[in-house]
Amino acid sequence: MDIEDIEIELFVRAMQLRHGYDFSGYAPASLKRRVLQLVRTQDVSDISELNRRVLHEEGFLSKVIEGLSVPVSEMFRDPQVFRALRDKVFPVLASYPQINIWQAGCAHGQEIYSLAILLEEAGLYERSQIYATDFNDAALALAQEGIYATRDARDWSRNYQEAGGQRSLSDYYSARYDFIKLDHRLRRNVTFANHNLVTDDVFCEAHLILCRNVLIYFSNPLQDRTLGLFRDSLVRGGFLCLGTRENIDFAPSAVDFTNVDGALRIYQLGGRQTR
């Protein structure tokens, strides 16, 4: 066995035993890249040195968690997905007096604000409750602030238009120098909370769960467990939206979901009786 692979196993054990974070179900190839990235950013000589600090240094944990969750996203990423949510999912949500939406792994919140804007424009925001969760507290804090770089806003405006946005994206933020700040009214029905998909349980009854490009970091058993968690959190007929290149064909729990739009990875719990 490669020495680096041994060090990574020890890292995973150290995180588990010392801090209670379980990364053993993460897919090894990208976990390795992130751990090596941590070695570089924390300026330590190797993974063993990283492990020593994980074990002994108070306050080091938050840096490790930040390094291991690397949240990269954009507003209205894959615009056609948001268009499909609006056209195919929202009409069903509109039939509920109260709509619960869970964004699992909200990272820096770009998707939360995208969703909030879409709900506003569909006239559904007032009766929506959005739960935005992540296991990374630093990411949650940034999501709550809703401040992003101005240079990203141009691409996001284009995404927004392609997603079928009815106004101008700039109607929803104020720009200052190099930053934009999303309108705080967009989060009046958003609850930000720490939730770890690996270890935490059902906490709401949702009509729609968005979890895009999070399960790609999970091994097959953990992906399956998480899909089970989503199934147990959704009302019958509730919707699940994953990343457009995710594959749930190998997960036993996938049988509980039917395609709403297979290519865009939008599913419905139950729905038609057979998949």
């Binding site: 897919a27 890249r33 992130r34 990269v72 996203s73 490009n213 790609i216 970091y217 990343g243 290149r245």
Partner: peptide, 8 residues
């Protein structure tokens, strides 16, 4: 098997 990532 193939894996994907949206890391930086």
């Amino acid at each position: 098997r193939f894996a994907l990532s949206v890391d930086a």
